[in-house]
Simulated assay, not measured.
Amino acid sequence: MMGFGWFGWFGMLFMLVFWVLIIVGIVWLVKWLLNQGSKGSNVSTSKERALELLDEAYARGEIDDEEYERRKRKLLEE
């Protein structure tokens, strides 16, 4: 019974590292793709949140009608 020898152990270690790198690469790619797809939805969510904050500032009387309309127009055109 001769076993694997040095090349056999090196080969097994190389294959293990190879498959770990393949799996890590796939996980990274999936995360990257999901992040790319969600960027568009983050923009609309941030706009909605900005409009909510603008509405709250207007309701508290911190800004007048003219300032409210100006900021709202600016937010909606972006």
Rank of each mutant, 00 (worst) to 15 (best):
L33H: 05
F18T: 02
R70P: 00
M15D: 02
R70T: 13
W9E: 09
L29V: 05
G37F: 06
N42D: 10
L34R: 14
I63H: 02
Q36G: 05
R71C: 02
G3K: 09
L34D: 04
Y58A: 12
D65I: 07
S46N: 13
M2S: 15
D55G: 07
G11W: 01
L13H: 07
G5L: 03
G3V: 03
N42Q: 11
R71S: 04
S38P: 01
N35T: 11
W28S: 05
D55R: 13
K47H: 09
E78L: 12
K31C: 06
Y58T: 05
R49T: 14
E67V: 10
M1T: 10
L29R: 14
D64E: 13
K74T: 10
Y58G: 02
K72Y: 07
W6T: 11
S38D: 13
L54N: 01
M1P: 05
W28N: 04
E62P: 02
S38C: 03
W9H: 03
R49P: 01
I22N: 12
D65N: 15
F18Y: 12
N35I: 01
F18R: 01
K72R: 15
M1Q: 10
V24C: 08
A50G: 02
T45C: 01
M1L: 11
L16M: 07
G5I: 00
S44E: 04
V43T: 12
L51A: 07
K72S: 09
W6A: 08
F10L: 08
F10H: 02
L13D: 04
Y68E: 05
K31Q: 12
R60Q: 15
Y68I: 02
G37P: 00
L53P: 00
L53Y: 03
E78Q: 15
F14P: 00
V17E: 04
K72C: 08
